[in-house]
């Protein structure tokens, strides 16, 4: 008799932990799901922005493109930065298939028929913003069709292959 009582007591104790644990797991799941929902950013290429049109306007987006050097304009008075990016593939495999990031960026900038997108950003001009850099931008496409960036991330591929012929004997 006493033994069964002890067992009951033990399983009640386990129950307590199970419920407590489940509550915490549920809270963590809720945190993840709601935060994902609130902060998801669609990753698009320049081409996709055009093909989706109004559907993606005023939504949180992340886009990637090749910086066209001649288009960079910076006003140090207002810190308004404007430049144009050209379409590059969003998929890494595709980039590799086309000869690597450096080549894809170069081709994207040189190709006159490539789709381009104007970007506006307010803030210091990033150190890496230059011709044929890869720009990864966070922001929204406004009704004016211009991309209003909140955040700029830039990447320049190593170009040792290009530097070599100049100095090799």
């Amino acid at each position: 008799m006493e033994q069964t009582l002890a067992v009951d007591h033990q399983s009640a104790g386990k129950m307590k932990f199970l419920i407590g644990g489940l509550l915490i797991v549920a809270a963590i799941v809720y945190l993840i799901v709601s935060s994902t929902h609130a902060n998801a950013q669609y990753f698009l290429t320049v081409d996709e922005i055009y093909s989706k049109g109004a559907e993606v306007q005023n939504r949180d987006l992340r886009i990637s493109g090749a910086v066209i050097g001649d288009s960079i304009q910076f006003d140090p008075q207002t810190l308004n930065l404007t430049f144009t990016i050209a379409n590059i593939p969003g998929d890494n495999k595709e980039i590799e298939a086309q000869g690597g990031l450096a080549k894809v960026l170069h081709d994207a900038v040189v190709d006159q028929n490539n789709r381009t997108l104007t970007v506006i950003y307010n803030g210091p001009k990033p150190d890496l913003l230059r011709d044929e850099a890869q720009a990864i931008l966070t922001g929204k496409v406004g009704n004016d069709g211009i991309f209003h960036a909140d955040e700029l991330l830039l990447k320049c591929p190593t170009k040792y292959e290009e530097a070599l012929p100049d100095q090799a004997e």
Binding site: S35, T36, A38, N39, A40, Q41, F43, E151
Partner: peptide, 8 residues
């Protein structure tokens, strides 16, 4: 492709 940033 959907990404999440620092606010997430």
């Amino acid at each position: 492709k959907v990404t999440v940033g620092p606010p997430f």
